[in-house]
Amino acid sequence: MNDLLLLVLKRLGFGLLTLLVVSILIFFAVELLPGDVAEAVLGQGATPETVQAMRDQLGLDRPAVVRYLEWLGGAVTGDFGVSAVSGEPVINAIGDRFVNTLFLAAYAAVIAVPFAILLGIVVALLRNSVFDRVANVLTLTSISSPEFFLGYILILYLSVKLPLFPAIASLSSDMSLGELLHRTFLPALTLVLVVTAHMMRMTRAAIINLLASPYIEMARLKGVPPWKVIVRHALPNAWAPIINVVALNLAYLITGVVLVEVVFVYPGIGQALVDAVSKRDFPVVQASSLIFAATFILLNLAADVGAIITNPRLRHPK
């Protein structure tokens, strides 16, 4: 049991280290700017006084390392400094939006994950049948389409031609859950389409990979019925790859959400990031990038830990 704990701790430590390096990367990337943030934000027409005023506001005169440590310290407690454009605290601009994004991603995940894994197992069972071939072509088409293509098609058919769902997902705080789900159905559906295809293909591959193992043949030669071969003999060994598939796609949801949010004008953190990029509002860009990266790293970490824990060889050491 100790080995397992050690392995998990090692992995956690490594994840933390990666996060630290990533934060350094995100913070110091801005130092690549010709001039500094104030000049970049205000542009060439700005007077030296206004530039200096912004420098003071953002504390740019101090050494970068000091500012980094402060920024990191703040970030841990949810304080990302102030926006270079509005002067408001960054957390006000992105805090609620992050929650909205998580809601959308969760909405899509709740539909997509069970659906995709089930379908993946089914196509693995029916491999090389007509059903499998059709599913292969459809999923390939789905993962090949840009999110905005799927999004606009859905808008065209489910909103404009058949007015079933709203094309623009505006939210307000007093909506009931039902209304919320109705309003955000199209963006969620777009994400579901993309992610389901990915997950299905990966689940299928993971299971087919296992079906070639000698112990699966042994189970068949013991007279175990096909469904039981999958459920009792393949699945317990497939958890690691499946957990990996799920985590990878949840991570993908978090980023795929950027384009979908723009298509559906959804008030999420992705929109905020895109706006901030076009306005060159660097504190907001840095904060959102860090949040995205942290979520991504966390999910990968969860997948690895899950894979370690479900591995029988590690769980029951010699």
């Binding site: 193992s213 000698p214 112990y215 043949e217 042994m218 189970a219 009792r232 003999h233 317990p236 060994n237 029988p312 060889r313």
Partner: peptide, 8 residues
């Protein structure tokens, strides 16, 4: 070694 299921 390969024909026993490692999970059971």
């Amino acid at each position: 070694a390969a024909s026993f299921n490692p999970a059971h």
